[in-house]
C-alpha cells in the first residue's frame, strides 16, 4: 500500500470514501423504493408548478418513468452530494496537507512536485469515481427491490457524467489549493461556484438574462436534458473533461513554481 503516492493516498482516504459511498448508496436506495408512491402523486402535483421550479424538481412527465425519476431525483440532485465529498477530498489533498505540515515531509523526498500533484489527483479521481458508482449501485439495488427495469448502459453513462461534473468542481478546489495552499479558500470558492453554477443553469430556462451565463456554467453540460431518458451528449461531456484537464494543468504549473510554507 505504501509503494507510491497514488496507493498511499487511496489508503489514507479509504474510510472516508467507504463511509460516504455507503451512505450515499443507502440514501439512493431509499429514494428509489419510494418511486411507485412518488411517481403517482408528483406527476399530478407538478402539472401547475412554474417552469423555474420544474428545473429543480423536474416536470410531471419525468416522474412517469423510472428513467425520468432517476434522472431528476438521483442523477441531478445527488450530484451535489457527490460534489461536497469531492470538494472536501480534493481541497484536503494538497492545501489541507500543506496546512497540517505533512506535505512538506513528502516534498523533501526525491520526487518531482508534478508527480506528487498528478498522483494525488489521480488517486482522488478514482475515489470520486467510487462515490459516483455507489450512487448507480444504489439505483440498481433500488430498481431490483421495486421490480422495475433500467437501462444499465444509460446508467453507466449517467454515472460517467456525474463523475465528470463533480470532477470539474473538485479539480477547481484542487487547483486553487495547489495555487494558494489554503484549504478553506479552495474548498469555499469551489463550493460557492458550484452552487452558483447549479442556480444559473436551473433558472436559465425561465430567466432570459441568464442564458449567456448558463453557457459558462458547468452544470449546463451535465445531465441536460437527462441522460437516462435521452442519452448523453458526448460533446457536453467532452467539455467537462477538457475544463477539468485545463484546471489540472494550470494548478500543476503554479504548484511547481510556488513556495511551500512551513507552519
Amino acid at each position: 500500500m505504501f509503494n507510491n503516492i497514488l496507493l498511499k493516498t487511496i489508503y489514507s482516504k479509504r474510510w472516508g470514501t467507504i463511509t460516504w459511498s455507503l451512505g450515499l448508496a443507502l440514501l439512493v436506495v431509499f429514494t428509489m423504493i419510494f418511486y411507485p408512491t412518488i411517481s403517482e402523486s408528483f406527476s399530478q402535483a407538478l402539472t401547475d408548478v412554474p417552469d423555474s421550479l420544474k428545473t429543480f424538481i423536474g416536470d410531471s412527465s419525468a416522474y412517469k418513468t423510472i428513467a425520468g425519476y432517476t434522472d431528476v431525483q438521483i442523477i441531478s440532485q445527488y450530484a451535489f452530494m457527490t460534489l461536497i465529498f469531492g470538494i472536501i477530498l480534493f481541497s484536503g489533498l494538497l492545501a489541507g496537507e500543506e496546512g497540517d505540515g505533512t506535505l512538506q515531509a513528502l516534498l523533501v523526498q526525491p520526487v518531482k512536485r508534478t508527480k506528487v500533484y498528478l498522483e494525488k489527483f489521480v488517486s482522488a479521481s478514482l475515489l470520486l469515481a467510487a462515490a459516483s458508482i455507489s450512487i448507480s449501485a444504489g439505483v440498481y439495488i433500488g430498481v431490483l427491490i421495486i421490480g422495475e427495469q433500467i437501462d444499465i448502459g444509460r446508467l453507466a453513462e449517467a454515472t460517467l457524467a456525474l463523475w465528470l461534473i463533480t470532477l470539474v468542481f473538485s479539480a477547481l478546489a484542487y487547483m486553487l489549493g495547489a495555487m494558494t495552499g489554503r484549504r478553506g479558500l479552495a474548498g469555499g470558492l469551489a463550493g460557492a461556484l458550484a452552487f452558483v453554477s447549479l442556480l444559473v443553469t436551473s433558472l436559465a430556462s425561465s430567466v432570459k438574462v441568464l442564458e449567456i451565463a448558463d453557457k459558462l456554467s458547468p452544470f449546463h453540460y451535465f445531465n441536460n436534458p437527462g441522460i437516462l431518458r435521452f442519452g448523453p451528449r458526448w460533446g457536453d461531456l467532452a467539455i467537462l473533461a477538457l475544463v477539468t484537464l485545463l484546471m489540472l494543468w494550470l494548478g500543476a504549473w503554479f504548484f511547481k513554481r510556488r513556495d511551500i510554507y512551513q507552519r
Binding site: 489514507s12 497540517d100 505540515g101 512538506q104 515531509a105 523533501v108 512551513q262 507552519r263
Partner: peptide, 8 residues
C-alpha cells in the same frame, strides 16, 4: 527534519 515535523 523540519522544526514542525508532521506526518499522516
Amino acid at each position: 527534519l523540519a522544526g514542525d515535523f508532521a506526518l499522516d
